[in-house]
């Protein structure tokens, strides 16, 4: 079968591969190269070595956005996963309306980041108006605003994954625990949570990458205001590219740093939680 199939390489693989090479691989490699160049367009480049990378650390907005993003990611991973897991625990119980509630909680996930950002901008500003403040009055408001927005959007998605995980736990485990006289909290910590480890891996992975790559919501909710204090990494890079003339090289270098941060986080996070899965 392999032999017969191999003749059909151009039909099966070539379209995808061509598009993938032109629109992903070449831009990626070119991007790596351009981070070492001074340029304004792709055809007008001058190799300058690591100068762009040195400039990054002198740019306080980047360092700030890095910490802001890291803090945001940490907070959102904990908050979203705890909430989603709790909701999933309730909605796998037998009571009237669970299907409807699942539908409702999942719904915000389908709405795009730009639309979400403006919805919440109106609401936060409406609430803060009672205290004569606005969302861009302080970075703290922006931070919490973004966090609430992300919870609203993502809790439903993670909940669906947790529900799938919870439903795959065999019922006889709980029965055995009940016969042994385990309390509800023991059942939760000894059965439910360890058995949900694969779902926890996936959800922390998704919330981590979603938070680090967050862009649309950030742009629409605060656009980095006040004075770039709520700018996250992705937005900082876009602003460096398109709002600061002559900084394209630095923007590309920032993007390379961003890529390595995301890659290292993803790899180490997968290793960490996968190890825990194997142990039980």
């Amino acid at each position: 079968m392999q032999k017969a199939l191999k003749k059909y390489f151009p039909v099966f693989v070539l379209p995808t591969m061509t598009a993938f090479i032109i629109f992903f691989l070449i831009p990626f490699i070119l991007g790596l190269y351009l981070s070492l160049c001074d340029f304004t367009t792709v055809s007008d480049t001058r190799f300058i070595g690591i100068e762009n990378f040195q400039k990054i650390w002198g740019d306080s907005t980047f360092v700030h956005s890095l910490w802001f993003t890291a803090l945001f990611a940490g907070a959102s991973i904990v908050l979203i996963n705890v909430l989603a897991f709790a909701v999933a625990l309730f909605l796998t119980k037998q009571f009237r309306g669970t299907n409807f509630f699942r539908t409702v909680f999942f719904m915000p996930n389908l709405i795009g980041g730009i639309v979400l950002g403006y919805i919440w901008q109106l609401i936060f500003n409406g609430i803060l108006a009672y205290y004569s403040k606005t969302l861009t009055y302080s970075a703290v408001y922006g931070f919490w605003g973004l966090l609430i927005l992300m919870c609203w959007q993502q809790v439903g998605y993670m909940m669906i994954i947790y529900i799938a995980g919870l439903q795959s736990i065999p019922a006889d485990l709980y029965e055995a625990a009940r016969i042994d006289g385990a309390t509800p909290s023991q059942r939760l910590s000894r059965i439910t949570i360890p058995m949900s480890m694969p779902a926890i891996t996936i959800c922390t992975f998704l919330t981590l990458t979603n938070s680090f790559k967050l862009f649309d919501q950030n742009l629409a909710l605060t656009a980095g205001q006040p004075s770039d204090k709520t700018e996250m990494l992705a937005l900082n890079i876009v602003h460096t590219f398109y709002n600061r003339i002559g900084w394209e090289g630095v923007g590309q270098a920032k993007a390379v740093v961003f890529f390595f941060i995301v890659a290292i986080l993803v790899i180490s996070q997968l290793k960490m939680t996968r190890n825990r899965e194997v142990q039980q």
Binding site: F28, L30, G31, F212, G251, A255, F258
Partner: peptide, 18 residues
């Protein structure tokens, strides 16, 4: 591998290519 790469990494070169 491509799933890990953030869009900002390729956005400039991709838009120029297009």
């Amino acid at each position: 591998f491509s799933m890990v790469v953030p869009f900002q990494m390729v956005m400039f070169t991709l838009s120029k290519t297009a």
